[in-house]
Design a protein around this nucleic acid. Structure first.
Lengths: 206, 206, 206, 206
DNA sequence: GATGAATGAGTATTCATTCAT
DNA sequence: CATGAATGAATACTCATTCAT
């Protein structure tokens, strides 16, 4: 387990370098030389750690998913019902404001690569599925706990998830179109349209 | 009258060939040779009609926008108030089902190119801006006509538009995640959460 | 003789367009489209009047030679002996100052093309030979008329001609290296070193 | 010490290959493939060592200038006054006979490229300026040492330099026009016309 | 592990030339 | 004569991948 402690580090280093370069040049535009330079490594070393360029992309996807999952775990900790839902939305829409400025651009670029590279497509699809799955679970739990009713959790989860992904797309390409700070509240409001809330708690969360 | 025989036709032909190829291979993956082959033309001819590959992409974007605008015009004809809003949503979410099968994939690919190619970014941003602008107008008109109240049309328009764009992203990459036929109704429901409707018309349209 | 009066005009027009473009972009850099544009003609028309691009170059060479020959004829008219020599030098070194600003650059470019294109090489060599031949004749005549003695007209002609051509090369690439107005007087002085003048006429001409 | 194994060598190898090809096909005619083939290298390697084709041309110019400078240094060693001048002339006019058979043709081709490629123009102009500068210095020293008087070293240097460059141009394109072995003596004679020599040393050197 | 030189296929773009109208 | 669309070969340059050291 402590064998070649370097390798793991190097791999992450390279994946992050791809993120950095890809955010500005896209996947095709990010040459191995670019990546190596961004990582401060010799070009030959990249292919020592990754067999192909695609492998780096998949590793980056993993990394992005993990980061997001961590953020989610933290956000959902100790929450239930509506609060869980709201925190899910908040955590996701924090992507644009997060530490990695290129993560958003990479996500959009990944979405494009996913269409043409089957392996990427599958991995990306799984990531989407997993996140949406959490949302479904969360809605079912909310219903089970009596926090709210949700006539069709599958449909509701997809809709909320779509709203989130859509804000990503707009934020990446035309940030001006999103009034500052309006994304999360708006999605939270819209989400409520897909639930039936008990009588007295109609205020939006935070 | 036969003066400019076919140059306009050829340009459209080439742009459509790009759409066809790009849907499967992405923008970078669509070589000029591929495009020419898809259009049934000699490779050299492509650059006779378009100076650069980017120009073809911009022409394709124009085409996609026009198609969508036509669809919208048709859908909005003679409608007002809530109906307008619903038809806007329906028309947009028809993209996936439309005649051009690759249009959706191209739209996602375009969104990626928009990030790295400034010219594309501007054009794509303008397209987004224009469509969202229609939504804003529509909400303001609805309010003016008393069909509903909309506390903040800018925010509401962005949110609804995000949901639409998000469905695009999911449809392109993980269609299974969207229960058949659920997209438009879900967005219409969510839209209502951002409006204040008069007493008795709370059923969804269409 | 009056048959297709247009053709002759068109050919000259095209050759001059080549001169114009070639002066700035060189021969390879001058595309048929460029030439056509400079001549204000449709691209297809160029190949109607000239079978190949090389033919235009040869025509341009002819034109340049004719222009220079005209200038020479004028300059040498009614002169003899030393005066002829001096006027030959003056006329040639006027090239840089002449009406056609690109002629000099074209001449240098031609000299480069002459090396790789045999047909151009032959034509260019003939042009050089012809001009130097005039110089030889002129020196022989001067000797015959007793104006001066010239031990070896072949050698002297080549040397004077080289000096002239060398000024072309320098003028085209580093005009600053030539003190204003110094070229012709310097060559005239140098030429005298290859002659034996009678006692009292050692002043320079013009 | 074995750290930068061969990159410098490769660059020279490639530049010399350009010289070889360019002498016969000119600069535009020398394709990267040609150059690689002439150097016995894989095509891709050329662009590994040089970013652009122009860079190779500039390297070749440097090489040619260095070769010539070496030849000059050797020729001028331990000489003064008239002898220096004569050796300068001799050394320059040895170019055609030198080991590199294509050097002359390349020089002419370079002169053409210098006109249209600004970077080449500057470098070529600097080379011309440097060589002529040596001539100016040499003339001033000769005057300072009392070997001869030179009323205007700037003008004289340009004239002698022009004669040399002119012989290049003629040698490259119409060698027959130069009687064998006549170039250097002729230029030496002409050079004297721009000097005032002390009474008794009117024989030519070498 | 690490280096950087090497490979060779791939790509956008240019262009002389042809040709139907 | 004239047009401008069409052709297909050529070219500089890029790049993922390999490999000797």
């Amino acid at each position: 387990m402590v064998r070649t402690p370097n390798t793991h580090e190097r791999r992450k280093q390279i994946a992050l370098a791809l993120q950095q370069v890809m955010a500005k040049k896209g996947y095709d535009g990010a040459s191995i030389q670019d990546i190596a330079a961004a990582a401060g490594l010799a070009p030959g070393l990249v292919h020592y750690h990754y067999k192909t360029k695609q492998e780096i992309l998949l590793a980056l996807l993993d990394h992005l998913v993990e980061m997001q999952a961590d953020r989610l775990r933290l956000a959902l900790e100790g929450t239930t019902g509506l609060e869980s839902l709201d925190h899910f939305i908040n955590a996701h829409l924090a992507l644009g404001r997060s530490a990695d400025p290129g993560a958003l651009a990479c996500w959009i670029a990944l979405s494009g690569e996913a269409i043409r590279q089957p392996e990427v497509g599958e991995a990306f699809g799984q990531a989407l599925t997993a996140f949406r799955g959490q949302l479904v679970d969360l809605l079912k739990e909310g219903e089970a706990s009596g926090a709210f009713k949700c006539p069709d959790p599958e449909i509701a989860a997809s809709a909320v998830f779509a709203a989130i992904q859509g804000y990503y797309a707009i934020a990446a390409n035309a940030r001006v179109l999103i009034p500052k700070g309006s994304a999360a509240p708006a999605v939270r409001s819209m989400a409520r349209a897909l639930l039936v809330l008990p009588k007295r708690s109609s205020r939006s969360a935070r």
